[in-house]
């Protein structure tokens, strides 16, 4: 019994330490956003009074509203287009099953293994030739066809009741209308989960926007944060406010849709 009590205690200690380590950087981020850079650099652990000062400073160095708008615009537009194009494909591969299309599907799955590092140079030259460098369009375009989301939708369509499609066909409903008016409402939770995955990926994207975007007025929050922090003496007070701004939307999406978030992550593996 004593041994059992000891192992219970060890369990709670281990979990508490892990939880503390996981949460501490969040606390550090919040505290630091209210402190001056000098305080941050000396490891001050309590909340300070420099939040407004940091925010104003950040806003004079970059147009925070515009940066936020750029990031949101790219994230929302590419998420909407990714969901439409990729869910259409997932639906098409599963509902109109054929041997040829399955061959194409398998080829698509293989492309999931291609590392982005091997694509970025040709993509960059393609965008240069198409005169699209330094545009938001070029940031979004290569991300719209997400093979992972196609795969995710196909897996989820497997349990979609096909009788609904047959019933609609008997009533003479056109195929695209079946997709929009029958499939979409039924698959709401799948769309929610896919939305979270794509939105997070897009909001957090760094390398491709870094290559494509040069003008200051087009930059996203990650690019701004990265360039601010690469200064020789980074002004961490200002930067921490920026990281809070960058983290709030993804945290909000996570807390609003926690259940779908986990479902989306693990759903594809089951």
């Amino acid at each position: 019994m004593n041994k059992h009590k000891f192992s219970r205690l060890a369990l709670y200690v281990f979990l508490s330490i892990s939880a503390f380590v996981s949460l501490f950087p969040f606390y550090w981020m919040l505290v630091s956003s209210t402190n001056s850079t000098a305080d941050i650099n000396s490891g001050k652990l309590s909340f300070g009074s420099s939040l407004m000062e940091n925010l104003t400073k950040l806003n004079t160095q970059v147009d925070l509203g515009l940066v936020f708008y750029n990031t949101s615009k790219i994230a929302i537009l590419s998420t909407v287009f990714t969901l439409i194009i990729s869910s259409m494909a997932g639906y098409g591969f599963e509902v109109y099953k054929s041997r040829n299309r399955d061959k194409v599907y398998n080829a698509l799955l293989l492309t999931m293994m291609i590392p982005f590092a091997a694509l970025m140079i040709p993509l960059f030259t393609m965008m240069a030739k198409a005169n699209l460098l330094d545009t938001h369009f070029a940031v979004m375009l290569p991300t719209i066809a997400s093979v992972f989301i196609v795969f995710y939708f196909r897996q989820c369509t497997k349990v979609f009741p096909k009788e609904l499609i047959d019933a609609a066909r008997v009533d003479g409903v056109k195929e695209w209308r079946i997709f929009v008016f029958v499939y979409w409402p039924v698959m709401r939770s799948t769309y929610a989960a896919a939305f979270i995955i794509v939105f997070m990926t897009s909001w957090n994207a760094f390398l491709w926007p870094l290559i494509v975007l040069q003008s200051a007025e087009l930059k996203t929050i990650n690019l701004v944060l990265s360039s601010l922090s690469s200064a020789y003496f980074p002004d961490f007070g200002v930067i921490m406010v920026g990281t809070v701004v960058a983290t709030i939307p993804t945290l909000a999406v996570f807390f609003a849709m926690q259940k779908q978030f986990v479902a989306g992550m693990t759903g594809s593996v089951k």
């Binding site: 194009i85 990729s86 259409m88 494909a89 639906y91 098409g92 591969f93 509902v95 109109y96 054929s98 299309r101 194409v104 599907y105 698509l108 492309t111 291609i114 091997a118 694509l119 140079i121 040709p122 993509l123 030259t125 393609m126 375009l141 290569p142 719209i144 066809a145 093979v147 196609v150 195929e175 997709f179």
Partner: peptide, 25 residues
């Protein structure tokens, strides 16, 4: 026809932005 229409967009985009670049690389 419906099958290819539904999958066409994604397939074309993947061909253009993944398969072509990896060969070009």
């Amino acid at each position: 026809i419906n099958g290819w229409t539904f999958v066409g967009g994604a397939v074309a985009l993947v061909a253009l932005f993944m398969i072509y670049p990896i060969l070009n690389s």
